[in-house]
């Protein structure tokens, strides 16, 4: 018979300082080459972690035309708040560092990186996500153009690309192809559907599709 499935063998421990600190017999798995210097203590992890903050603050946002309020962890990004609290999973977490653009939302009509925007700092403001671009079941012209032009592959960056393109066309309704490329360069597409993305934004700008 099969034995019980794997688990952690150690018994559950109560929280607090009186914990087992015995090192379990440290047998390297026959791995050569990691020569131990045997002296000195290496870099320690940071020991000055910030104190636990106040647990929540009330936040009210208008999201895709709907007023929503919730107690929000002051550490929570706009992105995590919309995804975790309100189930708006269109915007994606790609890097959580403001570098990839997958989390792009419109904040009072302007493109922002929601993964590096704290929700509590935007109390009272208006948010549009990719879900909010669909009106009465009809896709936004930018969404239609992305679909028809195959402006994506895996689709993970697409919510951000589409939202960013909508913001771009508000900033600059008649962009040249070079301007589109430049102004969409904050949104990484690792599948590199870039040519099709430019085609899609150009189509939407012309209102052809």
């Amino acid at each position: 018979m099969r034995e019980k499935a794997s688990t952690f063998a150690g018994e559950p421990e109560p929280s607090g300082p009186n914990r087992r600190t015995v090192l379990v017999g440290a047998v390297g798995a026959g791995v050569a080459g990691t020569a131990l210097a045997g002296v000195g203590v290496g870099l320690a992890a940071p020991t000055t972690a910030p104190p636990a903050p106040q647990e929540t603050l009330p936040v009210t946002l208008t999201v895709n035309g709907v007023r929503r309020s919730a107690p929000v962890d002051p550490r929570a990004s706009l992105l995590d708040t919309l995804r975790d609290q309100w189930g708006l999973t269109g915007p994606k977490k790609g890097c959580d560092q403001g570098a990839c653009g997958a989390c792009t939302m419109l904040l009072d009509g302007t493109r922002v990186l929601s993964c590096i925007s704290l929700a509590v700092l935007h109390d009272g403001q208006e948010i549009t996500t990719v879900e909010g671009l669909v009106a009465k079941g009809e896709m936004h012209p930018v969404q239609r153009a992305f679909a028809e032009r195959d402006g994506f592959q895996c689709g993970f960056c697409t919510s951000g690309q589409v939202t960013s393109a909508v913001g771009l066309l508000k900033e600059n309704p008649r962009p040249s192809r070079a301007e589109i490329s430049e102004l969409m360069s904050g949104n990484l597409c690792r599948c590199a559907a870039y040519s099709n993305i430019v085609d899609a934004v150009a189509d939407a700008a012309r209102g052809e599709r």
Binding site: V130, Q143, F146, A147, F152
Partner: peptide, 13 residues
């Protein structure tokens, strides 16, 4: 056109 195109451009995927 990809069958999942609408889902991917509307955030429903």
């Amino acid at each position: 056109t990809r069958v999942e195109a609408r889902d991917k451009v509307t955030g429903a995927a």
